[in-house]
Design a protein around this nucleic acid. Structure first.
Lengths: 232, 232
DNA sequence: CGGCTACTTGACCAGATTCAACTCTTGTGG
DNA sequence: CCACAAGAGTTGAATCTGGTCAAGTAGCCG
């Protein structure tokens, strides 16, 4: 593990930005790197909370499963973001499951280490508040969309969002840079894979997107934005 | 303003519990009480953040309005809870509007005062994390319900939740202790006032609830729980 | 009272889910 | 290396939940 690099990486994460050098050193000392392969689970819903993870490279996703077995994707996590926020507010169990959707690297910190950092360095706590505040607002927004907007609109918003947080420029447009099935999109937009498939087929015919097996490319994002912002 | 009483009240709020006496004094010094009449607005969506409020008595509600003018009720706030969490994570504008649904008393603290408290007393920051964490989880749960459950189920959950957080025992059952219209329920459950009206009428016929103009009484909560937990 | 707001209910309609059948990829093991 | 099973996607048809439209009633306040 390269010490210099690790400090640089930590300094750029949402949780440990703007820390004094001393604090950053302390973080590094209490953390450990870990590789997670595609599909590997970091922790399961309802398991006791032990660790907070920081994504270094790759992409993970947080999802929740209902009593009936339905899944809802809470969010995708990329470099610099945290997985396991339950360790921040000292809640007993993880509210969801986090698994890698691509080979990834994470840094793990024990619940105890996080507590110590929060109490000792106010900036860590302020950063943590900002992380939770942002996620809370993000979820409120989705709630609002889900209550008031059509499936097509929600789906347009969903892929635009994914494009902006994990998009890669290609010859045909912005490609969402991790495997993403119809089912995944359905679990994010609150619909079924059938409706997603039909909608994407329609958009593909109009040249708005290109999509295939677990792949989505946004060819005309502006046109999708129009859909995302047009009632009904 | 009674100083002793105020300290006691503060010590029982979600944000200022478990503080050392010194911190509590500091909070009291930087805070000021305020009355808000039924219908009065504490702050508006998109307004710059200036103040964080703590509910002392009464009931407020937080809601968001979409570009098309649809409203979504984020939550109702009762004694001990905070309004204006945006002041905690230093975000620029309020994400929603908060207004009183009954005559209420609140304690206000300026954004600056909150910042100082957060930096100086780690326990305040830990409490704040727990507040935001709980709200985030609560919203995730609603998101999950909205994506996967029928209107009837969501409505049952909604009134059960309101009953448990603001219920008052009466001769006929648990009455939700503040004015609550069909429209309000619709904006919480993600549906229309028509569907709410039809559903409540049905339940009333079966003796599960009694309801009238802005009033709801849960006569048979157990039966509602069954509805809330039965697919589809 | 008169007017406003809340509520109710019927009729109709449509967006979206469900059911079902089929195709296309991919990757695994014989 | 090929075969074939499993996974992913497509699409039509039927269905239905819940929203929209419309019209009217009941309760409340000035």
């Amino acid at each position: 593990m390269d010490r210099e690099t690790d400090l640089d990486i930590l300094a750029r994460t949402e949780l440990f930005r703007a820390l004094p050098r001393e604090a950053l050193d302390e973080v590094r000392r209490s953390s450990s790197r870990k590789r997670v392969g595609k599909g590997d689970v970091l922790f399961h819903q309802d398991e006791p909370v032990s660790t907070l993870y920081i994504v270094v490279v790759g992409r993970l996703r947080a999802l929740q499963t209902t009593a009936e077995g339905n899944q809802v994707i809470i969010r995708y996590l990329g470099p610099g973001e945290i997985a396991g926020y339950a360790a921040l507010d000292d809640s007993a169990t993880y509210p969801g499951t986090v698994a890698a959707v691509d080979d990834s690297h994470v840094i793990g910190l024990s619940k105890g280490a996080i507590r110590r950092l929060l109490e000792r360095f106010p900036q860590v706590a302020l950063n943590a508040l900002s992380v939770l505040g942002n996620r809370y607002r993000e979820t409120q927004l989705r709630l609002r969309e889900l209550s008031t907007e059509s499936v097509e609109r929600r789906l347009a918003r969903t892929i635009l969002r994914l494009g902006s947080q994990a998009g890669r420029r290609t010859a045909h447009g912005i490609e969402i840079a991790f495997p993403l099935s119809r089912q995944d999109l359905a679990e994010m937009a609150g619909t079924t894979l059938h409706t997603v498939s039909r909608t994407l087929s329609g958009w593909e015919k109009d040249g708005l997107v290109m999509s295939g097996r677990r792949r989505v490319i946004l060819c005309r994002p502006e046109a999708l934005t129009v859909i995302a912002e047009t009632a009904p």
